[in-house]
Design a binder for these strands. Structure first.
Lengths: 140, 140
DNA sequence: CGGTATCCACTTGGATACTG
DNA sequence: CAGTATCCAAGTGGATACCG
């Protein structure tokens, strides 16, 4: 239980970069060529698409298939392992979708509270009073 | 379907940083003080723990409670939203745990293949021949 | 077409020192 | 104790140019 957290963390760092999830999501429908991915993703540079795909290939999540025609053609496709990653990733996506509005609201509230630093020192103080009035010491 | 991907990506960037998941996992058992978190996490700097907790607080995932005793005391706890995040995150953790060995093996194979760049030009070429022998053109 | 190589701006995160 | 402030090293990612 304790030693699994670093691994979760490592995995999230791995797929939490700027493009990996986008690529996986695009590949879930089927194989794509390099240029197709680049066009469909839109804002990605050639360099980042290459390194993203290399990372996925290295981890065994996608396969890279070269057709030595002229002009050259390279297909990328999800492996079975890659497809299996979709489920937990999409679960996280559903969570994001379900709570995005709540999070946005929380951010605006937080930013409003903290931007009003000089005018209203509301941050912490008021809440503390409320919270302290109900058993502040009996914690651990 | 298409517009949800950037949001998944944004969420993963948000929680895919170096410490956020570790903090959430530690808080799942109950509230923790700043110094408790710092000690239990181990390698984190004061600066990063602060900014990680601020980010979580801003998104409404943790609450920050100040007890103006001397010395000062601050408790952090998961909100209900924070707890709800645990489920998809732990699903991803389970996936990581289940396939970590496979991924490590894939990495070693890949690295072995690519490090042998001068000796054996196996990367791509051999696979292409195999794959090309079965319907290379009929893709899209 | 599908990359690699190089350069560079921006961000992340650690170390250290100081504060209420 | 729980931060904030500052500085700095390493990493991330975009733009551009070139290659097979």
């Amino acid at each position: 239980m304790a030693q699994e957290c670093p691994r979760v963390s490592a995995l999230l760092s791995r797929i939490g970069d700027k493009w990996t999830v986008l690529v996986v999501m695009l590949l879930r429908e089927g194989p794509r060529r390099f240029s197709e991915l680049k066009r469909e993703i839109g804002g990605i540079s050639q360099r980042m698409l290459t390194s993203t795909l290399r990372g996925l290939e290295r981890d065994g999540l996608v396969t890279r298939t070269v057709y030595p025609t002229t002009p050259q053609r390279v297909d990328y496709a999800l492996t079975r392992l890659g497809h299996s990653l979709r489920e937990p990733v999409e679960a996280l996506g559903d969570w994001a979708l379900a709570h995005l509005d709540t999070i946005d609201r929380a951010r605006r509230e937080f930013d409003g509270r903290t931007e009003a630093h000089a005018a209203t020192p509301a941050r912490g103080v008021a809440r503390v009073v409320r919270l302290q009035s109900r058993s502040p010491a009996s914690h651990k």
